[in-house]
Design a protein around this nucleic acid. Sequence first.
DNA 1: AATTTTATTGTTATATTATTACATAGTTAC
DNA 2: GTAACTATGTAATAATATAACAATAAAATT
Lengths: 131, 131
Amino acid sequence: MAQKQEYLSKNQKIVLDIIEKSAQPMKAYSILFNVQKKGLKAPPQVYRALDKLVEIGKIHKIESRNAFIACRNSACTIANATAFSICESCEDVKEISSSKLSKYLSNFQDKEGMKYNKYNLEFFGLCKKCK
Amino acid sequence: MAQKQEYLSKNQKIVLDIIEKSAQPMKAYSILFNVQKKGLKAPPQVYRALDKLVEIGKIHKIESRNAFIACRNSACTIANATAFSICESCEDVKEISSSKLSKYLSNFQDKEGMKYNKYNLEFFGLCKKCK
DNA sequence: AATTTTATTGTTATATTATTACATAGTTAC
DNA sequence: GTAACTATGTAATAATATAACAATAAAATT
Ligand SMILES: [Zn+2]
Ligand SMILES: [Zn+2]
Ligand SMILES: [Zn+2]
Ligand SMILES: [Zn+2]
């Protein structure tokens, strides 16, 4: 599936840049604080960029944390099949790229035979360090 | 695995009752509005009850919607392995109870061989009616 | 029964997350 | 060049969630 957008707008670049520099998910208002020196002063500027970046798959939202992380899964050019592991102690988050898992979930059918075009999976546990 | 709590407190009962009566997920402030006639006037009263009900598995939080739904999966006495299907058009939400799926996910190991004690999976698509 | 402890509730205020609405500016299509 | 569309700026506000502390009630201990 092809990328939906060729280029990023100025604000989108600024927001993506700050997220990519972070090893961990960033919260919207933390992003806002960090990009104020670049001229983005108000929440809508950040949220608009976030929305678009999520839509085109450059970043993902960690729903249980209301935070955003850069996609580093090269197989994941699409924004609609995501899986993460989350450490409940240190809040470390990693994107899981398992073709087996993604195949399994993409093909999953419920009792009525319904298939889904999109999913988000969040695993919770303790990372190596915290165990 | 046994239930963690024998009985529910007054507020927990009131909140659970209103959620169980709803076919669809309810938002915290909608719950608050609905229980004001029963004397629960402030957000913390609702959120405390919600926290406990989630913890003991009576309800689940639909993270992508910030909403709460009653558990109707009899196999799901635990709160740590949940899966839902969500219609992106009418917002209909159903809990998925597939022992195959839950076994697959409970046994999933990432590249480093790590297993997780908890997960939440949300599928998105169009329900029968909306298709 | 009185005391201590624990769990629950009530209340106010505030923090955090996200959107609406509308004005302005830049870009693309014709 | 004008229209249509896209992106941006800005102020205000909506929606979601928690902190802090006081008051009650229930359970356990003496
Ligand atoms: Zn990705
Ligand atoms: Zn950790
Ligand atoms: Zn359940
Ligand atoms: Zn539907």
